[in-house]
Design a protein around this nucleic acid. Structure first.
Length: 926
RNA sequence: GCCGAGGUGGCGAAAUGGUAUACGCACUAGUCUUAGGAACUAGCGUCGAAAGACAUGCGAGUUCGAGUCUCGCCCUCGGCACCA
């Protein structure tokens, strides 16, 4: 053993041994319990960043911990290697996306290997290789057979910056998830996967996983899928005056009655408020509105057109959009009250949700209220919080106090109008339903609507089907062929994979590059063998990440995505770790895909991830100039920063970025904005993990990242602390070195009698084992490191020199150092291996030696003396040292014998004495 | 606006309702060194000479006892954004 700790030497040594012995190769073993530890796979950008290091360090710590607990651990890694950056590089720099991607993987794999992560590298999957995407296509065809994949013309989310189609999830908030630019709408033919077929299951099955998932992720998925229970109600529509009107029949939105009356369907969750409806409000994109643009009065048509263009504009979320709309002149008949009410177009009604038509009930819906107030529409209260005083009978005539405490003259229009609140209550002014509770009325009125054929109970969802078509080259081709004779024909399974050509003309214009490659799209029809054309769109890359974790279980299967028998052993994933930015995209798609696989009978379960841990972002300071409308980032070394006494930035100025001479440069000063943002190379606030490993070693870097903050906290990067991690490892190194010669001594049978020093150390050792075990079981990674530091300090403080140590003392130190080594393994595996090799006298490694995590002995962990704080009226006044087993009587006697206690309680009445066993004494005096 | 998480030393952070600030960073003094940005020792919430008092965003409450539980505010961060 070297006198000093040389990180690089130790790390290279053990990485070599691990690779040569296949230490982390996992195989099915029915004798052992399995554990599948998984971290979200990286996109191979070419550079690892600290966020990756945090994610993978946590996953690796868990994998090591479970191995040492005797589990058969599957811990794989792979590459999310399809996607836009490769294509961007092709457009901008003319490189081949495949070569670019492969080169990036090589360099990133090197970075991961230098971190010493314990992966079974044999199981790598590469999304961009035909061996993998063949099965994206395989699944697509299966879904096509199941009716889960379909094509339709639709308005898609379009990012003009990236020139890309986005799914709803990717366009969340009206901004592109990748570049943050506003999203617009564009008409395109798109392939969809029917995620909506599983919405109820995706929601209801959350009960299976909610104990293992962060509540926030569960909540966000629920909100995203947005299930609401309500009813559809059909309103007859008619034109007033001379104007004709058109009513195209759109399934689920419009219809005609047997008598040929035209009807528009609205969705409401509050059918009980229908007697308060003052209008029907349609989206500007509603088919009935679209079809009648020529029939409307000029000003009406102009207004509608205006609203429609406004709607197509990217939304600015900082500004609340003012309610706008116009009365179309059409009339609707309230099927409950037979009241004729106007049909409006409103900018607050979205075509994409429900039926694109709502009934406006201003008294009980804030948006409708705002709308009614703006346009002077009547507001009629139909729900009150308490039943009317004269219970029973018809209460139309009595006066009531509404929710807002305004005096309400029933049945009349209010001036000024008052908002009565959106909560459930008791119905008034609602015909035969008056007097019912909202709950009763909802059921009864829905039943009534069904009976008379103008409505039904309905559940709507916010979640839409998943649009997977991308006009991109660097993705999995959609295995569909278009034949003039046979129409849309799925490719045959035996013809998979539909391989990407070597290259294509990359223009970045948003058209599919594959459409310009005849060798690719010219094909024969799988059905009639006639000439046909391939689909030239490729799949969204979230397809790849929806099932990759199944592929790891059987990574080289050429027939199937994976062998169901092998997956049955490894799956589901026991612990998944990744960023919570994937809460609604990846994690919904992966859950959806799993349910599809279950229905394909590949697997017998429907939830892929038993437990999920979302680690916080690693962030750093950024400096940028956004005066041009786009953020231009400046590297920190080009920025002068002023800070307040707390280290917070107060101003930042860019220097030396002018075009001229050095002196001229210095005079060019641009004031910058600053922020704390997720680390990335493009923002100039990234720390290169390779540099960290080079300077401090992988073990120290990993240990520090785990120690610095709780895993789910945001971590503001501060390099200063990492030296503490190096010092800690060096301290342990010196300890092992100091006791080295004596550690070989082993004892058969029971440990020898104990001295005070050895007993105290053993106590600390076992207390630490308990703490570290509990922490790791609950996925805390910062506190166990602190506990290990304490143990190492305790060994350092051991009051006996090695050369004077008695056998029992050597035993205690050996036990402590062995436990420390094993518990250090999850955080700093290389140096732990080195210590372990000294303890066992061979270099076969922890796994070959079948090393086990230390077990704690409660007897040894128990302290023989503890300090009891003595409080008087809850204030700490003194301390007494006694056995934790001391009787309450003895403890009370000792307490009152204490000089300090005597002084304070002297002359006061003792009201009571509270003794919490093994904790404290509190004397209450008056 | 709605939902969620959180506010503890100079900083990252610990604390089953029971000694607040463990562990680490930074800092201060010292020891050893030709030297130290190494190692070791000691100190380190605020006020105070001390005794002690006051300290977990602010204000109430429950309790023998509250960082922790309840209620009301304030602030920060994240998510959602007219979802009928």
């Amino acid at each position: 053993m070297d006198d000093k700790y040389f990180a690089k030497k130790i790390e290279q040594k053990w990485q070599k041994i691990w690779a040569e012995t296949g230490a982390f190769h996992a195989e099915v073993d029915d004798e052992k319990p399995k554990f599948y530890a998984l971290e979200m796979l990286p996109y191979p950008s070419g550079n690892l960043h600290m966020g990756h290091v945090r994610n993978y360090s946590a996953g690796d710590a868990l994998a090591w911990y479970k191995r040492l607990r005797g589990f058969n651990v599957l811990h794989p890694i792979g590459w999310d290697s399809f996607g836009q950056p490769a294509e961007d590089a092709a457009v901008k720099r003319g490189v081949n996306p495949r070569e670019w991607t492969e080169a990036n993987i090589v360099s990133m794999r090197g970075q991961l290997q230098r971190l010493g992560l314990s992966y079974d590298w044999r199981r790598q999957m590469y999304a961009h290789r035909p061996e993998y995407y063949k099965f994206d296509q395989w699944f697509f065809l299966k879904m096509y057979e199941m009716g889960l994949a379909y094509k339709k013309q639709t308005q898609v989310n379009w990012c003009s910056h990236d020139q890309a189609t986005l799914s709803n999830e990717q366009a969340s908030g009206g901004l592109c998830w990748r570049c943050g630019n506003p999203v617009t709408k564009k008409d395109l033919e798109q392939w969809f996967l029917k995620t909506t077929a599983y919405t109820d299951e995706l929601l209801d099955d959350m009960t299976e996983i909610e104990s293992g998932w962060p509540a926030s992720v569960i909540k966000r998925q629920q909100d995203w899928m947005g299930r609401s229970y309500g009813a559809y109600v059909d309103f007859e529509i008619s034109a007033s005056g001379e104007s004709l009107f058109a009513c195209p029949i759109v399934d689920g939105i419009t219809s005609t009655t047997d008598l040929g009356k035209k009807r528009v369907r609205v969705f409401t969750t509050r059918i009980d408020t229908i007697f308060g409806a003052n209008a029907i409000v349609l989206a500007a994109e509603h088919p009935v509105i679209q079809a009648n643009m020529d029939n409307f009065a000029e000003d009406v048509a102009a207004k509608i057109a205006y609203i429609r263009t406004e709607n197509a504009k990217p939304a600015d979320h900082e500004v609340e959009i003012e309610k706008d709309g116009i009365d179309t002149g059409l009339k609707a008949l309230n099927p409950f009250s037979n009241e004729e009410i106007p049909v409006w177009v409103g900018n607050y009604v979205m075509m994409g949700y429900g039926t694109g038509a709502v009934m406006s009930v201003p008294a009980h819906d804030e948006r409708d209220f705002e709308f009614a107030r703006k346009f002077g529409l009547p507001v009629k209260t139909v729900i009150v919080s308490e039943p009317p005083a004269s219970a029973g009978g018809n209460q139309e005539a009595c006066s009531l106090t509404s929710d807002t405490a305004d005096k309400v003259e029933l049945g009349s229009t209010l001036t000024p109008p008052a908002y009565a609140g959106g909560s459930d209550g008791v119905l008034i002014n609602s015909g035969v339903w008056s007097g019912m509770t909202s709950e009763e009325a909802k059921a009864s009125m829905t039943e009534y609507a069904v009976k008379y054929f103008f409505g039904e109970a309905a559940t709507t969802y916010r979640l839409r089907d998943w649009g997977i078509s991308r006009q991109r080259f660097w993705g999995s081709p959609i295995p569909i062929v278009y034949c003039d004779d046979c129409g849309t024909v799925p490719e045959k399974f035996e013809n998979l994979p539909v391989e990407l050509p070597e290259t294509a003309p990359f223009t970045g214009t948003g058209e599919s590059p594959l459409a310009k490659v005849p060798e690719f799209y010219e094909t024969t029809c799988p059905k009639c063998d006639g000439p046909a054309r391939r689909e030239t769109d490729t799949m969204d890359t979230f397809v790849d990440s929806s099932w990759y974790f199944f592929r790891y279980s059987d990574a080289t299967n050429e027939i199937l995505p994976f062998d169901p028998a092998i997956a049955a052993y490894w799956m589901p994933v026991d612990q998944y770790i990744g960023g919570d930015d994937h809460a609604v995209m990846h994690l919904i798609y992966a859950r959806f895909w799993t349910k599809v696989m279950r229905d394909l009978e590949l697997i017998p379960f429907g939830e892929p991830f038993k437990r999920l841990l979302t680690q916080g972002m690693v962030v750093g300071e950024t400096f940028f100039d956004d005066s041009s409308g786009k953020r231009i980032y400046f590297p920190p070394d080009k920025v002068e920063v002023e800070r307040d006494s707390k280290g917070k930035i107060t101003s930042a100025t860019a220097v030396g970025l002018g075009g001229g001479t050095a002196d001229a440069d210095r005079s060019v000063r641009t004031p910058l904005k600053y922020a704390i943002e997720r680390m990335s190379k493009s923002k100039g606030n990234g720390v290169d993990p390779d540099e960290m490993v080079e300077a401090y070693g992988a073990d120290a870097a990993r240990l520090f990242v785990m120690f610095a903050a709780p895993i789910d906290n945001e971590l503001v990067w501060n390099e200063a602390g990492i030296e503490g991690a190096v010092r800690f490892i060096q301290r342990v190194w010196r300890l092992v070195h100091r006791w080295n010669e004596l550690l070989r001594t082993t004892y058969e049978g029971a440990p020898p009698a104990e001295t005070a020093a050895s007993r105290k150390l053993r106590q600390k050792t076992h207390q630490t084992i308990e703490r570290v075990t509990d922490s790791l079981e609950s996925l805390q990674f910062n506190t166990p490191v602190a506990a290990l530091m304490e143990l190492s300090n305790a060994i350092s403080d051991f009051p006996v020199e090695p050369q004077h140590a008695a056998a029992e003392e050597i035993f205690a130190v050996r036990e402590a150092l062995t436990a420390l080594t094993l518990m250090l393994t999850p955080f700093a595996p290389h140096v732990a291996e080195e210590f372990y090799s000294i303890l066992v006298g061979n270099e076969d490694g922890l796994i070959a030696n079948n090393a086990r995590f230390p077990e704690f002995d409660p007897e040894l962990a128990k302290a023989d003396e503890i300090e009891f704080p003595i409080q008087v009226n809850g204030k700490l006044r003194s301390r007494i040292t006694a056995s934790p087993e001391i009787s309450n009587e003895d403890l009370e006697r000792l307490t009152f014998a204490d000089a300090k206690v005597k002084e304070i309680t002297d002359g006061k009445e003792i009201v009571k004495v509270i003794i919490v066993p093994k904790r404290l004494v509190n004397i209450v005096v008056r």
